[in-house]
């Protein structure tokens, strides 16, 4: 859940998002959030992709769908 909480706060609080970029550990700690270094790296990389490719949930589904249901 914590990764989701960090994403939600990044997406709804621009100040939190910019602080997370400049000083991730202190920013997370101030909010009582904890994610692994790997998760933080995935998050920041993904954030760049969302911005560079101007992705939203519909365009993401356009490029990334599959037809599997188990």
């Amino acid at each position: 859940m914590t990764l989701a909480q960090v994403v939600y706060q990044m997406s709804t609080d621009s100040e939190f998002a910019s602080q997370l970029y400049s000083n991730p550990e202190a920013t997370l700690s101030k909010r009582g959030l904890q994610i692994s270094k790997e998760e933080l790296a995935f998050l920041l990389t993904s954030r760049n992709r969302v911005e560079q490719d101007k992705l939203n949930i519909v365009s993401l589904s356009d490029v990334g769908t599959g037809n599997w249901r188990a």
């Binding site: 990764l3 989701a4 994403v7 939600y8 990044m10 997406s11 709804t12 790997e38 998760e39 995935f42 998050l43 990389t45 993904s46 954030r47 992709r49 969302v50 992705l55 939203n56 949930i57 993401l60 990334g64």
Partner: peptide, 16 residues
């Protein structure tokens, strides 16, 4: 769903 950051969440989960 878009405003909540779902796109970023899904991309991050795929990477993870």
């Amino acid at each position: 769903i878009n405003s909540s950051g779902a796109t970023l969440y899904v991309l991050s989960e795929i990477e993870r």
